[in-house]
Design a protein around this nucleic acid. Sequence first.
DNA 1: CGAAGGATCGTCT
DNA 2: GACGATCCTTCGT
Length: 183
Amino acid sequence: MSTLPKKFYQRDTVIVAKELLGKKLTRKIGNYEMSGTIIETEAYRHKDDPASHAFRNITDRNKVMFGEVGIAYVYFTYGMHYCFNVVAKKMKTSAGAVLIRGIVPEKGIKKMQENRNIENLKNLTNGPGKLTQALEITKEHYGIDLTKKIELYIEEGLEIKKIKKSTRIGIKDGKEMLWNFQI
DNA sequence: CGAAGGATCGTCT
DNA sequence: GACGATCCTTCGT
């Protein structure tokens, strides 16, 4: 199976967020592989989106959102969680990223359960902080290229027909935009 | 069940 | 110096 090309991410952030549903996320540590299918995403854009980290200005943290597409944007929040995003936007001069909020675990479930110290599959990777903990994604992955099959990448997956739209979670402004997408 | 509150620290003002 | 694109536990019903 091949990874999604740069071209895939070089489109409107909201469209990419929808189309990432059903795709396969893989995390490789040495020979060990963990993977799952993406089932929930959120789009965060630029100046038109008050909930986005890129809304105000470019900073040390958010700078990858302004750069090349198909790159990982990982940040630390609430003093204990990492969140994993993919840079996606139509214009080179703009900014945007898609937050991966949930996957269905497939390969390497045992390791994920160890990492999270729980058994229940339902609670294993059904939240942005949970999936980074399960897949051992940290700030070390900030800025890596997800189109290359190295330690973290996204491949082709299922065709999704029905998409549920909703408001994004945990934000103050920008609630009128239905940019949370789930299968 | 659902609601409420605590944990904990990097980032921005 | 305040707060957050969260999660988990506890407590009450």
